[in-house]
Design a binder for these strands. Structure first.
Length: 453
RNA sequence: CGGGCUAUGGCGCAGUGUGGUAGCGCGUCCGUCUGGGGGACGGAAGGUCGUAGGUUCAAGUCCUGCUAGCCCGACCA
């Protein structure tokens, strides 16, 4: 994309209403525009990040054997009357009437609807286990939305639901989600720590939240510092293997890590003093096992091998996709702006032409632009008639991980400059070498899309 | 929902005390110079001051109602 043809309304000054850094940077980098309290338009640059995250979430869910679908944002109230949650949910639920005065609601979650779909089409244990998920906009009429997309009223969320014949199988589904979530966060460039949590209104006794450590987080967390050293890394995972999933879950849950709702002072103080860590975190996902809480009242039953009708065991699992955009920025920025992890960056690299209109720099930039695209890279070429300072400031603000600077000075020695946003490290490379370098870097993140030299 | 506050060109703000010509910085447009960290100079466009009513010869400014948004708290992916 050429910046001169793009829509990137960056702000030089701090928007006054934004308090936390991710919100400020999202506004300044032209990612979002607020339309009402807790409701945002996603401008092109922000949408690209949202889509990258969404894509990674999809890939990891599908890898774990979970099946994508799509449910509507508006739901009939009757489904929620069946589960007794229509009244119980309270004013957080946005209720609307259609022209026939029928009660509808903008879905805050989808347990009821997925259960309805399940009971309509599944009647035998032979179709189990089954995990369906979707990524869809939700609405919860928060009392006080704030922090930009971190706590909006409208938010984009992946929510999944597993259906299993018995508790054992459902717990495997729980573990599968646990592991797939770990992988997802690692690909997003985030350190998210699973913590034993409180089940809240969804119910059930088995639940973990995944928290990204950040000073601006809304949750108070307590953990053994050693948990931050555990990584999935590149290990091969067989999601069908109960044993492997269980062992990974055990590995990640053997050390103390709790949110304040489940915090135990006595257990915490048993940790060696120097490893006791108290911090704040942003909740970016939660998984639940809740057994037959919805299947029983809503009649989601299957016939088992003995011909008996039994309610299925269920769980639900969520990842806050829109919230993750903010969470990633909270975890990865500096005083100049955003620093996108390579896995989610909206463009793979910037190209900064330091002398727009100069024959040599224009030609070189155009060549790099075309060539990098041939390799599957998506560059953002700053071809505006701006001075160097303005281009660098924009580049730092929007945070692309790599930036290629093309100047007359460099071209005289046959090189361009590759700058790493995170370290500020600069290297002089030939145009061929710079393409080669970038495609090697991104092959690790998006192997299917990047060509080899 | 309790407490505090705000609303004036695209953005950030002043002007309201003491009613009388709507202003500044940034951005935008045109021109010239400039060209490695938001450059300089010259010119220009752009605002029924959130909204409805009231007081007044006269309201951005005073009064009343309403709406929207922000912050602190209790609640949430």
């Amino acid at each position: 994309m050429r910046l001169s043809r793009y829509f990137l309304p960056v702000l030089k000054e701090e928007p006054s209403e934004a308090q936390i850094v991710s919100h400020r940077l999202m506004l300044r980098a032209g990612m979002i525009k607020q339309q009402a309290a807790g409701i945002y338009s996603w401008l092109p640059f922000g949408l690209k990040v949202l889509r990258r995250i969404e894509q990674i979430v999809h890939e990891e869910q599908i890898r774990a054997g979970h099946i994508p679908m799509l449910m509507p944002t508006l739901q009939p109230a009757d489904l929620w009357r069946e589960s007794k949650r229509y009244e119980a949910y309270g004013p957080e639920m946005l209720r609307v009437k259609d022209r026939h005065s029928r009660d509808l609601l903008y879905g805050p979650t989808n347990e009821e609807m997925i259960t309805d779909i399940f009971r309509a089409h599944v009647s035998t244990y032979k179709e189990l286990p089954l995990t369906l998920y979707h990524i869809q906009w939700k609405f919860r009429d928060e009392i006080r939305p704030r922090f930009g997309v971190m706590r909006g009223r409208e938010f984009y969320m992946k929510d999944g639901y597993n259906f299993d014949l018995d508790k054992d199988s459902a717990l495997h589904a729980y573990n599968r989600h646990f592991v797939s979530y770990l992988r997802t966060y690692e690909r997003l460039g985030l350190k998210a720590i699973p913590m034993r949590a409180d089940s809240g209104p969804i119910g059930g006794d088995n639940t973990h939240e995944f928290l990204v450590l950040a000073d601006t987080g809304e949750s108070e967390v307590y953990y053994d510092r050693a948990v931050t050293d555990i990584q999935l890394g590149t290990r091969q995972i067989d999601y069908e293997s109960q044993a492997q999933c269980q062992s990974i879950v055990s590995e990640f849950t053997s050390l103390y890590a709790r949110t304040d709702e489940t915090h135990s002072v006595s257990e915490f103080s048993a940790i060696p003093m120097e490893r006791q860590q108290r911090a704040r975190g942003i909740e970016v996902g939660q998984i639940f096992y809740f057994g037959t809480k919805y299947s029983e009242p809503m009649g989601a039953v299957v016939q088992n091998a003995n011909g008996q009708a039994v309610p299925v065991h269920m769980g639900s699992h969520g990842i806050g996709v829109s919230r993750l955009v903010g969470a990633i920025i909270e975890a990865s920025h500096d005083e100049k702006g955003i620093i996108w992890p390579e896995g989610v960056t909206p463009f793979h690299c910037g190209i900064v032409n330091l002398k727009q209109g100069d024959d040599a720099t224009d030609k070189t930039c155009n060549w790099i632009y075309a060539r990098s695209r041939q390799f599957g890279l998506e560059p953002l070429y700053d071809d505006r008639q701006e001075r160097a300072g303005a281009k660098f400031a924009t580049s730092d603000l929007i945070g692309l991980p790599w930036c290629i600077t093309v100047s007359p000075r460099g071209l005289n020695s046959g090189v361009v400059e590759l700058t790493c946003r995170k370290t500020s490290n600069r290297e002089n490379l030939s145009v061929d070498a710079v393409i080669e370098r970038l495609s090697r870097i991104y092959r690790a993140h998006i192997p299917s899309q990047i060509a080899t030299a």
